[in-house]
Design a binder for these strands. Structure first.
Lengths: 211, 211
DNA sequence: ACCTGAACACCGTTCAAGT
DNA sequence: ACCTGAACACCGTTCAAGT
């Protein structure tokens, strides 16, 4: 089936690409070194030539998931719009692959991947004269909120797909139909709150420096 | 040493209490069913009489970690103060035990523990006539930000305690001393942003309803 | 009601040795 | 440079059986 004879060698990029495919297909609990190796037609121990340990491999997968963040063109945006667009794009990146939010959450916490929000937000805030300290804080708030929110959301999605609450939850309490739309409206409302909060901080900062 | 003869039986509460002690002492990776059982002088299989699986046991430990949230008395606070106090208290709860933020993060995402922010925030927002939809969104923003931020923070703390970057990081780049104070000032600034954002949303809401 | 014993089907990681 | 083979020291979970 595959184009190359069985004796092929692999690169770090091959490994993380195949790992991402497996993540999406079988989920994080089944993303084991042995399974990744098997998909590459190799033994698990071979992976340790490319990566020092599993966490490093998973960090490479996380970086792959976050790659589309770089395509967001923020040059013409206001600060508030940038916050909302980067947050929305981050959520899209995480929803694009099964269990991606959980994986990225841990890579970020371990400090093995860079902030997917900070650099682009900073170009805009610097352009507008917003102090770096404020934009760094806002970038953290956006990142942690989006990753946590989407982690929870993604968990509910796969729980629903296993039919774990389809029947009784909606019959016992009809409110649930409206109580858990989770169509992204709440998400965008929260992003707007953080963006508005940043604006307030900026105003307060310029007031104290001027007056 | 212990007061009772060796034939003692256990309850769910005993189990989660001992598990929390082990978490704090040895960390999440070593919090295995076998280690918990050993600390209770019992076999791992015995734990499955008390809990259906490990995630359920960990959820009980998470609930224990979050218990001090109930002691926050919000009755006399403004909405903004409530957001900041609940956020700060949540961070304290998570920093009180090793790896607690990581553990609680996953229990929350799996939906196995209730929001540690929502109920108390809602009593205050309802008192002030803030619509439930806004306060629910704010509660989510606060919760996800605090858990994510503290997860990252706690990971750095234990990394530092293992001396993983003490030497070269500060010598190569002296800015790092100021770049990572992480003394909580950034944290409180971010909480204030979310609180301010909520205030803005409330004002916008009442304007549209009135005018 | 609460636990043991033993097994099942796995893990991540190391390392000498191969090509 | 890249991988195999084999081992080490573990996992979570199930279930018949004990008391």
């Amino acid at each position: 089936m595959s184009g190359s004879p069985s004796g092929r060698r692999h690169t770090r990029d091959d490994v993380s690409e195949v790992a991402l495919r497996l993540l999406d297909e079988y989920g994080l609990p089944d993303l084991t070194m042995r399974h990744i190796a098997a998909a590459l037609e190799v033994r698990a121990s071979a992976l340790y030539w490319h990566f020092p340990n599993k966490q490093a491999l998973l960090a490479a997968v996380s970086a792959r998931i976050l790659r589309p963040m770089e395509d967001v063109r923020v040059e013409e945006m206001s600060v508030s719009e940038t916050v909302r667009r980067l947050g929305a794009r981050l959520r899209e990146c995480l929803l694009a692959y099964r269990d991606a939010a959980e994986l990225v959450s841990s890579s970020l916490a371990l400090g093995l991947v860079d902030s997917p929000v900070r650099p682009q937000l900073m170009t805009v805030t610097r352009r507008d004269g917003v102090p770096d300290s404020l934009s760094r804080v806002a970038a953290e708030a956006v990142m942690h909120f989006v990753v946590g929110y989407t982690f929870h959301e993604q968990q509910r999605l796969t729980a629903d797909s296993f039919g774990l609450l389809a029947a009784d939850a909606s019959s016992l309490n009809p409110e649930n139909a409206t109580a858990r739309p989770s169509d992204g409206g709440d998400f965008e409302e929260a992003l707007k709150m953080i963006a508005d909060g940043l604006q307030v901080s900026v105003r307060q900062h310029t007031e104290t420096s001027t007056g």
